[in-house]
């Protein structure tokens, strides 16, 4: 099954992608994919891993590794600002009708 976070970080699933059971193979070695641009993924402690193939990327991301923490924080702020902007517009619209300024 395709994972949305995997697609977001690693790109679209290759057509011929086959998920390999890596956990049960202690000698498994990821092969570099020349056509895959290296991506850095991070764990919650800030440790970095550079992944060089879609399979490797999918494996790490499925295991909880994610984008750079600061990017995660920025994305959070981007969404927060969007919510603030939309709410402000709604509130601004309602209040522009409800408030009356009187002299004094």
């Amino acid at each position: 099954m395709e994972n949305e976070i995997v697609i977001k970080i690693c790109g679209s699933y290759p057509i011929d992608f086959v998920k390999v059971d890596i956990e049960n193979n202690p000698n498994f070695v990821f092969q570099n994919d020349q056509g895959f641009e290296t991506i850095n993924v991070f764990d919650s402690d800030g440790n970095t891993a550079s992944v060089n193939s879609f399979l490797e990327c999918e494996h790490y991301v499925s295991g909880g590794w994610d984008v750079i923490p600061i990017e995660r924080a920025e994305t959070f702020y981007f969404d927060l600002f969007s919510i603030f902007a939309v709410l402000s517009v709604i509130v601004g619209f309602i209040f522009s009708k409800k408030i009356k300024i009187i002299n004094g």
Binding site: I70, E71, E74, T75, F78, D79, F81, S82, F84, A85, V86, S88, V89, G92, F93, S96
Partner: peptide, 28 residues
């Protein structure tokens, strides 16, 4: 624009809301 990826749709969605804020209030 720090970490805004202008090839991603969701970032445009974010930017749209910011400009909506500016446009609406400046108009008002």
């Amino acid at each position: 624009l720090y970490l805004i990826d202008l090839t991603k749709f969701d970032h445009y969605l974010n930017l749209y809301t910011y400009f909506l804020f500016v446009t609406f209030f400046s108009y008002l």
